[in-house]
Design a protein around this nucleic acid. Structure first.
Lengths: 336, 336
DNA sequence: CTGAAAGCGCTTACAG
DNA sequence: CTGAAAGCGCTTACAG
């Protein structure tokens, strides 16, 4: 491996001079600089980033902690993050934690040891241990998809789940539906709660008292949605439209309806949330609420960039707008 | 930030002693070691990995260069890679190159500068520039999904596309189909060629001369498959089964057939390749050839690990077996 | 403009 | 068992 010293020796100059050429320092004769640069080229010199970071106290490295890289949602965020960060000369180091606390802890340790300059994180769950570690980090942190606990002012970028849910239900209302069911995620899920809250509030704003039998909770998968739809039809037979808290649930509902000969959207309308790739498939064409996934990543990265440059942390969470994507699974209510 | 020096000062010992405690060096009194470790705990000392790497010439960092993290295929490989590497104490640094040569070059530069210990790479295309850079790396490299040029013995792990294609066509043959069409990827695609080769050879082995009108090439997407199916039916009207070189093409074909009232599998059978998530959807249930994606990542990582420990490079590429996944889109040939 | 020296945070012979 | 010293590859005052 060729170092700054080798180049210096070759040229009979000091390492300081070589370093100055490398760093575009003004205090160097253009002539000398040219010679050094040529020698570097010739000997295929590449600077050692580790040594540089050690001195500069800046590693140009950023951590990105996500629960599951296989989930297209996070893959898209990652893509957005990388887009802006790598253009600014940062290397992003992924921490794919597979929803395991132990992996999160390990990664956070790595972030400290490797002197990363900042981190964008979506902890699987925001428990005390994680919060504690996050506090100890001493570097800029931005949270995606999660809220910091009271008192800790870590900036956040997320989608406005509540508003998105309102949009979905308003759409159903505008289609004259009155018996609107809800298929939800597990009750402990924060995003699930927000979407449910949007559902309830919008119903009430529309003068409808939410039927206690109108909502079923408990999952995230197609299979969960399938079962939930079965349950919903049973306990809330008048249901003419359903708001599924995510697309997978919606697709599961669609599947149940298809298998049981219930026509969508003629007999039952379905709207989802997320705008997952699959939802646009010919056979599905699920009307849904799109989240700006790539944008979320970009925003988080821009925020982090600003913080790493010493700008103040925004006091308020950044909530990104969702978008209603009308496809084929919702229609105007027709009695009977 | 607390360093080894701070700990030493606190305890009135030398930095060597602290270092020895940190590294489980045998030459240290257990008593002393305990004290040092306690002090580290107390002052929340974390070693500086940059400084360590600089001396040890080992960064415990591995590069993973992939064309698109949003592609579930690569996300799954990445997951497999991370599974084994992070368990061995390595941090994996993703290089998401979005199919851009310039990003690949930049990432490879980063790999050198940051003194990564090895790299697993899927270059978008294997051109001279990339090959050149790969050669200059001086660290273990393993290729996934790509072949090294003649003469360069970089180890490879990939799926056996040829054999997978043979399996697919043999299955169709076993179903008594004789007029088997092929919907292919762009002709320059290596995997596309391999799968086409499997198609042609298996047909011939079955005593069927491939009809020149039986194959159409040109894409990878659902839309491409849709158009290709239209073309195939036109130029090869007797087609009773089609082998689509990937699932997206297969799904596109399915879509065309559905829209044109051609019953699958009663009138036309379709088999894909990849076993993409979507292919298992209720409405699709595409019979296909599964690639062991996670396993590919794991194998590549294990290989790299072995190489980083100084083991010799395997001379032959590692080809992983595919698996026929029978679902609902293929049936026995029925004339008429 | 240039070089010698100190230092970033650590490890590792070497001497005791 | 312990410490002083050299060194990993670089940067940056400081002096000239």
């Amino acid at each position: 491996m060729v170092t700054i010293k080798d180049i210096a020796k070759q040229l009979g100059v000091s390492v300081s001079t070589v370093s100055r050429a490398l760093n575009n320092h003004p205090d160097i004769k253009p002539e000398t600089k040219r010679e050094v640069l040529e020698a570097m080229e010739k000997f295929q010199y590449t600077p050692n980033a580790l040594a540089r970071s050690l001195i500069n106290k800046k590693s140009y490295t950023v951590g990105l902690m996500i629960p599951d890289i296989k989930d297209p949602f996070f893959a898209n965020i990652a893509d957005g993050v990388e887009e802006v960060l790598s253009d600014s000369g940062y290397q992003v180091v992924y921490g794919n934690t597979t929803h395991r606390l132990e992996k999160e802890i390990r990664f956070l340790g790595s972030v400290i040891e490797r002197k990363m300059d900042g981190i964008i994180a979506t902890p699987d769950v925001m428990n005390d241990e994680i919060v504690d570690l996050l506090k100890r980090l001493e570097i800029p942190v931005v949270l995606t998809r999660r809220r910091p606990p009271e008192g800790l002012d870590i900036p956040v970028v997320d989608v406005d789940h509540y508003k998105g849910a309102c949009t979905a239900v308003e759409y159903l209302l505008s289609l004259k539906h009155r018996h609107i069911g809800f298929i939800g995620m597990p009750e402990y899920s924060f995003t699930g709660q927000e979407r449910y809250r949007g559902y309830v509030d919008t119903l009430q704003a529309g003068g409808i008292r939410p039927d206690p039998n109108g909502a079923v909770f408990g999952g995230r998968t197609i299979e969960d949605g399938y079962k939930a739809m079965a349950r919903l039809r049973e306990q809330f037979p008048s249901v003419s439209a359903v708001f599924a808290a995510n697309d997978m649930l919606g697709i599961g509902a669609l599947e149940w309806l298809a298998k049981h000969g219930v026509k969508v959207p003629e007999q039952v309308s379905v709207i989802g949330f997320d705008n997952v790739e699959v939802s646009d498939l010919h056979w599905i064409k699920l009307t849904t609420i799109a989240q700006p996934r790539n944008l979320m990543g970009r925003k988080a990265a821009e925020l982090l960039l600003a913080m790493m440059q010493g700008n103040p942390v925004p006091a308020e969470p950044i909530f990104l707008d969702t978008e209603l994507i009308v496809r084929n699974t919702c229609a105007e209510y027709r009695p009977g």
